[in-house]
Write a protein that binds this DNA or RNA. Structure first.
Lengths: 218, 218
DNA sequence: ACCTGAACACCGTTCAAGT
DNA sequence: ACCTGAACACCGTTCAAGT
């Protein structure tokens, strides 16, 4: 399990929560590779070893960071909307929520996160799917598909504004021998453009929802 | 760019290729965290600094490792099959190819891989999609959806045989308050089971292909 | 030319000591 | 009780020296 030694403001005036929040903030500013216990401690103005009073290891701290990022985020849904619209809203919101803390998706790739706060996304998805008429098994499989898509997208797509990554991809494709890569070179700019952004996300999501609709009416 | 100092067998009898292959093997045996330049060098029976004769940095070595893993893998397709069957085969093969080197998916999450060998998957996908009648833009978007799904699945699903991860998830769900998580607790075992495995992969893939079919005939 | 030990600036974490 | 410096066993990489 994770945090929770005690929420007592100790001699340093720090709580476990505050340490996790500071780590999340550090992650957003400097990225995952930059975070070290020593640097975080220095930023908090305490000795490196002080952090081990709040978390038994760096791993445990990182788990708490995921929790901190995810807690308080409540899906805003209107149950009167059609299930397809509800899922679209939920997945778009999830994408943007994760996109605000890019390091987190990679953190979740190593460790499946099973904290209650992180499971609200599953609950909200299943509520919509079961409400739409999917039985438990198919609702669960459908949720997993949506989860995989959203987390896969934020993990493997270049960041929102990263025009450079797209340009690099286009350049790499243009350098390919046409003979061995006839289709990729023919659709080079389109393939590079499809690597990320709202259009790509929405297109994929729409196809998945088309597929769910087909399964539901079959 | 990556490797390629020279393929000359030097004093140690090592080539850049061999170093990359050894690193891939090390990764498969010990995981991403365990790989260090010092340890790999020790395993190869050379000084740590010798590796820097082949690759300028650990990053560059890792890029070559991705290349080594991916090179030589040719999609085995029968162009006479319907496009849907061809895509199913290609994506299943890709999933298993990546699954053989679990560290690689996480490596690709940090750096988009644009080496020619890695782009064969894109070429094969686009060949099928364009052959099916998708225009370049929609074919590119559809490829990206499939790519995201396959890489997302191998990244965020527990490994094939990891019965323990499923049990842990089931346990975590059972501990949830029914009042706040009515749907998740109701479909707990199904949700845990859907985290990975062939059934989950094939279900998701089938829904995506349903969606592509809908888009194509619309 | 090719290889490598020593050294530098870092890590996470243990342990014993400080207040 | 709470905090922390020193120390240990590691990193990736530079640099100067070895053959």
């Amino acid at each position: 399990m994770g945090a929770a030694v005690e929420a007592q403001p100790s001699r340093t005036g720090l709580t476990a929560e505050q340490v996790a929040r500071a780590a999340l903030d550090f992650l957003d500013r400097n990225g995952l590779e930059a975070l070290s216990m020593r640097r975080l401690a220095a930023e908090l103005g305490v000795g490196a070893m002080t952090l081990y009073g709040y978390y038994r290891s760096k791993d445990e701290l990182l788990e708490a960071v995921v929790d901190a990022a995810v807690s308080g985020v409540r899906p805003a849904l209107d149950a009167k909307d059609p299930w397809r619209d509800q899922l679209t809203t939920l997945m778009r919101d999830a994408r943007h929520a994760i996109g605000r803390h890019p390091a987190l998706a990679r953190l979740r790739a190593t460790r499946p996160v099973l904290r209650p706060e992180a499971l609200r996304f599953a609950e909200a998805s299943l509520a919509i799917l079961r409400g739409a008429g999917f039985d438990d098994r198919v609702a669960a499989l459908s949720f997993r598909l949506l989860f995989t898509y959203v987390f896969g997208f934020v993990t493997f797509s270049p960041a929102e504004h990263d025009r450079e990554a797209v340009a690099e991809a286009e350049h790499a494709i243009r350098a390919l021998p046409t003979r061995d890569y006839p289709n990729l070179t023919a659709a080079g700019p389109e393939t590079a453009a499809a690597m990320g952004g709202d259009e790509a996300f929405d297109y994929g999501l729409a196809r998945i929802l088309d597929g769910l609709e087909t399964a539901l009416t079959a």
